[in-house]
Amino acid sequence: NQASVVANQLIPIQTALTLVMMRSEVVTPVGIPAEDIPRLVSMQVNRAVPLGTTLMPDMVKGYA
C-alpha cells in the first residue's frame, strides 16, 4: 500500500508547508504520495487542513 501525505498539525489557510507539518501514512482514500513531501515544502495550502487530514492535490497551490 502506498503512503500518502497527512497533516501532522492544523495547517492554517495560506500557510507555506514545512517538513514538520507533514507525515506519511497509509490511508484511504489515497492522497498526495509521500515521496512528494520534498516537493511540497514551501508550497501553500489553499484551505485550512485539520490534524490527521490527508493532503489531496487540490489542497496545495501549484501542486496539481
Rank of each mutant, 00 (worst) to 15 (best):
I13C: 15
A48R: 12
M59R: 03
M56K: 08
V20K: 13
A48K: 10
V27K: 07
G62I: 04
P50I: 06
L17Y: 03
R47I: 10
V49N: 02
G52Y: 04
D36I: 07
D58L: 08
V45S: 05
V49C: 06
A48Y: 13
Q9P: 00
P29C: 06
N1M: 15
V41T: 06
P33C: 09
S4K: 00
I11W: 02
P33N: 09
I11H: 01
T18M: 07
S4Y: 03
M56P: 02
N46A: 10
E35M: 10
V49P: 02
I13T: 12
P38K: 13
L17Q: 01
R39F: 10
Y63Q: 03
I13H: 12
P33H: 08
M22A: 01
A3K: 10
I37V: 06
G31E: 02
V30R: 07
S42D: 10
E35C: 12
P57H: 07
M21S: 03
V6F: 03
L17K: 00
P50K: 09
V60A: 02
P29G: 04
Q44K: 14
V41Y: 04
L55V: 11
V27R: 10
V5E: 01
A34L: 03
A48D: 14
Q14P: 02
L40D: 00
E35Y: 13
V30M: 11
D58K: 07
V5M: 02
M22F: 08
M43F: 09
V6I: 13
Q14R: 11
P33K: 08
P57L: 04
Q14L: 14
M21I: 03
I32C: 05
A16H: 15
E25H: 08
L51K: 12
E25A: 13
R23F: 04
V20Q: 13
M59Y: 11
I37D: 01
P12C: 06
N8V: 08
V27Q: 00
N8I: 05
S42M: 15
P57T: 05
M56Q: 13
I11S: 01
Y63D: 03
I32Y: 00
I11V: 06
I13E: 14
L10G: 10
D36E: 12
I11C: 03
I37Y: 02
L40G: 01
K61P: 10
A64W: 06
L17A: 00
N46V: 11
N8L: 05
M22T: 00
D58F: 14
P12D: 08
